[in-house]
Design a protein around this nucleic acid. Structure first.
Lengths: 162, 162
DNA sequence: CATATCCGGATAAATTATATCCGATTAAGG
DNA sequence: CCTTAATCGGATATAATTTATCCGGATATG
């Protein structure tokens, strides 16, 4: 059970995009360089974020990506759902309907107890991620980081704005 | 982010193995037939359960698998860990150390705030699964199932014991 | 000794994750 | 109007993982 790399990449990237001024954007190439990840593949992940309404894209010269919502309104769950999709990790294939003692379809109105248990566990997982906003992550990071490092990042962002 | 089919299969199978009398076992072929899953592959999953100490195997004629512990002492987390392995779903590749503003190794003693947030969410997931024992699952199932269906299963198990 | 069963390794097929490329589109600026 | 820079979307390729099969070896039964 593994999350794709895109989740890690785009979460970090959102914390950088949060530093971009209104009406400006950062290009995929710039972001890929910042984290040393493959630009072409990152582009795909950013498109997923855009379709989920987490970031906005601006085409053409001087364009790029920026956050579509305030950092308070973006949670880790939003990002995971955008990149990984809405499917649950546990896939119930209804094997209780198989074999010599298989149940009939009509006797399966209630969800399988095993599937329910996993669904419940995944719900607690999602709840925890939903409680973590980009704002809260950045606040934690700001507390732990050195002022020099934060200034380095701010300067780099400024330098990328064409 | 998907769990393997083996998790679903082996969890259901454990609920069946719980009905097997002391010193007896059910063969992989019988279990595979019961749920209509591929026997050869199921055999691999059962070996994972055995290495995790969840089931015992008995070789030779009349052998098979049975639970190694009481149903109160087997949790869904035990099964997931056995089949999927102990790796966390979120893989932190430390991309904060990459690129023009990358941190030095020595400045990375604290875990990355993003990785921490995901680790925390996964912990709630595991905690929930750890609270679900095989006993509790079977009790729920017994409440919801018809007496006829439970008897069908009990009879099938009896019929398999050589 | 014949049979049934798990064990472990090798291998293959199917699916998913990762990654690249390119033509189309869009916008900025000379 | 033209060039440049940038995303978009589709097609494609590669790598990794999951799913699945097979077989020789070990082991226990009767």
């Amino acid at each position: 059970m593994q999350l794709g790399k895109g989740v890690e990449w785009t979460t970090h990237i959102c914390t950088i995009l949060a530093l971009v001024p209104e009406k400006r954007g950062l290009s995929v190439d710039a972001l890929a360089e910042f984290f040393e990840v493959p630009a072409a593949y990152l582009s795909k992940q950013m498109q997923l974020l855009r379709r989920a309404g987490i970031v906005q894209s601006v085409r053409g010269k001087g364009g790029g990506y920026r956050l579509a919502r305030h950092v308070d309104a973006i949670t880790l769950l939003d990002i995971v759902a955008a990149i990984e999709g809405p499917l649950p990790a546990f896939r119930c294939t209804e094997i209780r309907q198989n074999g010599p003692c298989g149940l009939k379809r009509k006797d399966c109105k209630r969800p399988c107890e095993i599937a329910s248990a996993f669904a419940q566990a995944e719900q607690t997982y999602r709840d925890t991620l939903a409680a973590k906003t980009l704002a809260s992550i950045m606040q934690e990071a700001a507390v732990n980081a050195t002022p020099e490092h934060m200034m380095d990042i701010a300067k780099w962002v400024q330098g990328q704005l064409s």
